[in-house]
Design a protein around this nucleic acid. Structure first.
Lengths: 342, 342
DNA sequence: ATGAAAGCGCTAACAC
DNA sequence: GTGTTAGCGCTTTCAT
């Protein structure tokens, strides 16, 4: 009959009465069981079960100043294929946070300034426990703001160029591309090209570094075999066409992203050639599209990134009170997923 | 110096003192300004500004039993391209909810049973205000559960086959495919094929209906020109190949999804043909990939869907106390995005 | 190891 | 129109 649910929800009081203890003992069983006699614990647990008692989050938050809420940004669907990794990361973060009794609250922002405004509101209104940043870049105003305001946070992505004063988790892009290149070398390729992003982006330069190192180790001649384009399928296709048109074209191509690799793929098939057989191609990010069409790609371990981010966060939240205190950094290895294209 | 922020946060009390009114009057200014004298309002507003006062959500929730939180499911990254629409919807939902002073809380689930368990927890622990369901299907246990528990909710998607007892918003897939087909007819095509999903899925049958209607109106002969496949790029490609191999192949193809359309696209380019010039193709969902490669596609108005969902929700939340009372249904028209492929 | 008292910050109900 | 009283459900002292 009542608007919500039917029976009214039991409170701590109800459970306490039923178990024949004080309200406080019930709270202790929930929050510091080690301080209660095992026998009492059992009795209280039974009473909780029988009454169907649920803790009220709002009351708890009001008292403890901890909301058990983590904020993450929902990115606008990007033009390219790129958003897929962030979506996968967000999914992992959500499901793993649930296991630790944390929840993910979403916010949106179109630029850093808006994002900082969102932090301010979230922190002020909702007592948010922590923030997870994505897409860090050089001179990131967000990290500075959060640090100044003493808000705990981690970033998925290194603070490129800046000193690492906060906790972050990132993927070793160089290692991923290095592995991809070595894989091609092992398959007998000697003329291996690379299509990257224009210099200046931390992520892009990092990945290119892995390619250069692998080639240098084997003394491969890569002159004329590298290109740099702004990330997009069209640009990738154009760069791929250029390389294919060379007098001595490469036999294999490592790409900085799946967008670029898919562009190359498009060009190859448009010429009636077969990726893998006629020209090996490897992308980066292991997007759904890559898996569907059989494009080899370097996969970021999103699950591990999410887990590590939460480790850092809870470590800060439950440990040292000051956010900067427990700053730690973590570089995770990606893994090459070999498919028909290589 | 302090762990969090620096100065301690002002409470209602502080503002009240500063404005020379009671605590309650400040609350009234915030929640029912129409009941306070304009002059007082101004004074209180000024005091709020000066003190930098922020409402505490937890206290408010504790008192009002309203969290201003809406739950939405974060979907696992799908194998195909399909997740893109839901991601875009979630983004719209988040940004538009913010404007109404609501926030989106994420949860994950792998099936309906898990999702119901999540509802139970969310409702019990967090006083969630409402739920937004996606991907409704025949005999959906989730809507039943929510209705039984008196939890307000809307679904993006019709309750296929069942009676509409709850609020929902959906896209008129039939109209979208009808438009796409008419567009092709207007361009002079007479042999228009369709690749859909196997019969039995509400969404798929709905879309096919639009194609059939458009063709019937023009008395087009479509015998042998339709296929039904489980959604995937590979299946789409295979079906496309079959149709292209016909003695009298179609000159245009409408596809039930972008996944299928991209499969057809792959087959066309692999044959050295050009989508649009040699065979017109239209997909459904207007995914990022479609926009990048120039595939015409039927776009779902995710922003409008999000807006309408929130309308229905807030109407229920602020209006009738019983969830079922204000049930309303809304069918929104999609729009055809014409690109090079048609 | 357990209980009693106090109060987190806010708003609903009523009195003025 | 504004102030007073009470209490949402919980956890943190502190006493026992």
């Amino acid at each position: 009959m009542s608007a919500r649910g039917g029976e009214s929800r039991p409170s701590l009081e109800t459970v306490a009465e039923r178990a024949g203890v004080s309200r406080q003992t019930v709270s202790n069983v929930l929050n510091s069981p080690e301080v209660v006699r095992p026998e009492t614990i059992a009795r209280v647990r039974a009473a909780i079960e029988e009454t169907g008692y649920r803790q009220n989050r709002a009351a708890r938050t009001l008292r403890t100043k901890r909301s058990h809420l983590i904020a993450a940004r929902m990115h606008a669907p990007s033009d390219g294929i790129g958003g897929a990794v962030l979506d996968a990361f967000l999914h992992s973060l959500t499901s793993r946070a649930e296991l630790r009794d944390y929840r993910v609250l979403l916010y949106t922002a179109e630029d850093d300034a808006q994002e900082i405004a969102a932090y301010d509101q979230l922190l002020g209104d909702y007592d948010l426990d922590a923030f997870v940043l994505t897409g860090t870049h050089l001179g990131d105003a967000r990290t500075t703001w959060l640090a100044e305001h003493g808000a705990p946070f981690v970033s998925f992505g290194r603070p490129w160029g800046a000193e690492a004063t906060h906790g972050w988790v990132d993927v070793d892009g160089a290692a991923g591309v290095y592995d991809a290149t070595r894989h091609l070398i092992r398959r007998g390729h000697r003329r291996i090209g690379f299509i990257g992003w224009p210099e200046g982006s931390g992520v892009g330069d990092d990945r290119r570094g892995g390619y250069l190192r692998a080639c240098a180790e084997e003394n491969l001649d890569i002159s004329g075999l590298t290109r740099a384009v702004v990330d997009s399928l069209a640009n990738g296709r154009a760069a791929g066409a250029e390389l294919l048109n060379l007098a001595a074209p490469p036999t294999a191509l490592v790409c900085v992203s799946d967008s670029v690799a898919l562009g190359v793929w498009t060009e190859i098939t448009a010429r009636g050639l077969t990726p893998g057989a006629d020209l090996a191609v490897i992308g980066f990010d292991d997007t759904p599209t890559a898996s569907v069409i059989g494009l080899s790609s370097v996969a970021q371990p999103v699950g591990d990134i999410a887990e590590a981010s939460l480790d850092l966060l809870t470590q800060t939240l439950d440990g040292a009170p000051s956010g900067a205190a427990a700053a730690k950094q973590l570089l995770l290895p990606p893994s090459l997923v070999v498919r028909a294209s290589s």
